[in-house]
Each structure stands twice: as structure tokens, then as C-alpha cells.
């Protein structure tokens, strides 16, 4: 009966597919990570205990393994301020970089949306074009540009803006350049999508009702583009919090982002349980802005 209904309605399968995908490639692995985060590190293969092996220990073994799990790793994350500082640095870097991108991305998206219709797809391709080159290669290119005798210093010196080469590499500036450069399209595209939908008639209506251009921008364009702002901010903020490559290659090594700390725990210290706990907390931290965003959207749909 059930099977017949499923076959009669292929739409049902299609509806289940994303959940299946999420279960298989997100929930299940995440369950492993959560389990490891509750384990203790050990010199073994795999490098933690207990190992749950239902095939060997059966139900009793499973129960014994569960009893060994503890929250010790999470206590460590709170007690040792290396981790707290890393989280804070990640959030700060992500917030600053996202704010910079919003400031740069909004005018670009606005300009794109105001282009004649036939030029808009061209502008869109120009925004996307960098993706055709590997992200890693583009970051290495930035190392080249920012190094002591790189393109940036040569240009600045040729223009007589500086006399001595400036140290760019291994600074936060370099890291912000790399992050903003890499993530900017993720900010521009949702902003563009919401600004392109804006009816020019609404701006005329605002002008008709007594708004100067600037006022009309603040009172009509900005509020209507807020969903785009929200999407762009989330699309940038969340991955930047967990960013590892850019700070590792461009920033100094004195202050680490949480992604770097996690990498250290996992690969250098071989402490899988602590690395897993770090990842679990990171996910929890990232869920907060998501939930806030959803709340805001719901409120916008409501009566305001």
C-alpha cells in the first residue's frame, strides 16, 4: 500500500530527497562529531575512547560506552581562554569584514540594479567571474601582491605615496583584504537580487509624497532591500566565522581564529575530542544569528 502510494506520487520522493541528503551528509556526521566531543583523547586508533562498536560489544557494550561519555572537553573550552579568545576573534573579524562588505557591496549592487537592462547580466558575470579560478590560487595571488616587493608596494612607491615598502603580509589588514575580496560576491548577489526588484514607481511615489532623493532612499529603498541585506550578511558572516585558509595565509600567527585553533587541535595536537567540541560550540554560535534572522523575517511578515 505504502509502496504503491510512493510510486503513484513521485513528488513525495522529491520532497523527501533534501531531508535524506541532510540526514545522510549532515546529521549523521554531526552525530559522530558530537559523540567524539564527549569522548576522551587516547593514544590509539582512532585517537579517543570509548569507541562505540555495536557489532562487537552489543547492547551492554553500547551502554558501557555511553557511561564513559563526559562534558570534560566543553569545560576545557570555557576554562582555557585560548578558545574563548579564538571565538571572540572569529566573531569580531567576521563582523568587521561583513560590515566592510556591506559598505562596499551595497553601492555596487545598487549601481548594478540601476544599469540598463541589457548591461545587468554583464555586470553579474563580472561579479561571478573570479569564481572561475580556484579560491586558494586567488589567495596565493594576494600573497604575491601584498608581499614586500609585491605589486601593491611597487605601485604605492611609484606613486610616491610611501617611501619604504609597507609590511602588509601577516597583518590583519591583509587578512581583511583577502576576506572582503573573497566573500564580496556573496554580499553583492543577494543585495542585487533585492534591489533589482525595486519598482522605480515606489521612488516616484515617495518623491510625490514629499521625499527628497536621499529621504526616498532611506525610507523606501533601504527597507525594501533589507531581506537582501540579511541574506548577504548571513551568507558572509557565517562562513567567515569558521574561516581558516585566509587568516592562516594572510594574517599573523599571534591571534588565531577559531578555525585555526580547531585545525591545531585536530592536526597538531591530535586531540580529536577537543577539536570536535570546538566544532560543536562553533555550530551553536552560528545558529544564533540564523535564528535571530529568522525571527526578524517573521516579524517583518507580521504586522510590524
Amino acid at each position: 500500500m505504502m509502496a504503491r502510494r510512493l510510486f503513484a506520487r513521485p513528488a513525495r520522493i522529491a520532497a523527501i530527497a533534501p531531508y535524506l541528503w541532510m540526514a545522510l551528509f549532515f546529521l549523521l556526521p554531526f552525530a559522530f562529531v558530537v559523540k567524539i566531543s564527549l569522548s576522551q583523547t587516547a593514544i590509539a586508533q582512532p585517537p579517543y575512547v570509548p569507541v562505540i562498536a555495536i557489532a562487537e560489544g552489543g547492547w551492554a557494550g553500547f551502554k558501557a560506552a555511553l557511561a564513559q561519555l563526559s562534558l570534560d572537553n566543553f569545560r576545557l573550552l570555557i576554562s582555557d581562554n585560548i578558545y574563548v579568545l579564538s571565538y571572540l576573534r572569529s566573531l569580531t573579524v567576521a563582523a568587521i569584514a561583513t560590515a566592510i562588505m556591506l559598505l562596499i557591496g551595497y553601492p555596487i549592487a545598487y549601481g548594478m540594479a540601476r544599469l540598463p537592462a541589457r548591461w545587468q547580466p554583464v555586470a553579474m558575470v563580472l561579479v561571478i567571474v573570479p569564481f572561475w579560478t580556484s579560491f586558494l590560487i586567488r589567495i596565493y595571488a594576494w600573497i604575491n601582491i601584498l608581499q614586500h616587493d609585491g605589486l601593491l608596494n611597487k605601485t604605492l612607491m611609484a606613486l610616491r605615496i610611501v617611501r619604504e615598502p609597507v609590511t602588509w603580509l601577516s597583518t590583519d589588514t591583509a587578512m581583511y583584504i583577502g576576506i572582503v575580496y573573497s566573500y564580496l560576491p556573496f554580499m553583492i548577489l543577494p543585495l542585487y537580487a533585492s534591489l533589482a526588484k525595486l519598482d522605480i514607481g515606489l521612488l516616484e511615489a515617495a518623491a510625490d509624497l514629499g521625499c527628497s532623493r536621499l529621504k526616498a532612499f532611506w525610507l523606501v529603498t533601504v527597507p525594501i532591500s533589507l531581506p537582501g541585506v540579511g541574506a548577504g550578511v548571513l551568507l558572509c558572516f557565517i562562513p567567515i566565522v569558521g574561516e581558516f585558509v585566509i587568516p592562516d595565509l594572510l594574517a599573523g600567527s599571534d591571534r588565531l581564529m577559531i578555525g585555526q585553533t580547531l585545525w591545531l587541535e585536530f592536526f597538531t595536537n591530535k586531540d580529536w575530542p577537543v577539536a570536535s567540541a570546538t566544532a560543536v560550540v562553533l555550530l551553536a554560535v552560528l545558529l544564533i544569528p540564523l535564528l535571530v534572522y529568522q525571527r526578524l523575517q517573521q516579524r517583518q511578515l507580521g504586522t510590524d
Binding site: D199, A205, L209, C211, D304
Partner: peptide, 28 residues
């Protein structure tokens, strides 16, 4: 336009989608 004592009723109405009915009427 905003300096002229005229108001326009637009063909597609051009109501502000982010504002309520009251918000729209109160806008000007």
C-alpha cells in the same frame, strides 16, 4: 516633485510593500 503641492495616484498604485495601509497613508 516633492516641492509641488500636487499628489499623484499611480496606475499600479505604487503602494509601499514594507508599510501597512496606515503607514502608506501616513507616509506623506
Amino acid at each position: 516633485p516633492h516641492q509641488r503641492p500636487f499628489n499623484m495616484m499611480f496606475q499600479n498604485y505604487a503602494l509601499f510593500p514594507h508599510l501597512t495601509v496606515e503607514g502608506n497613508i501616513a507616509f506623506g
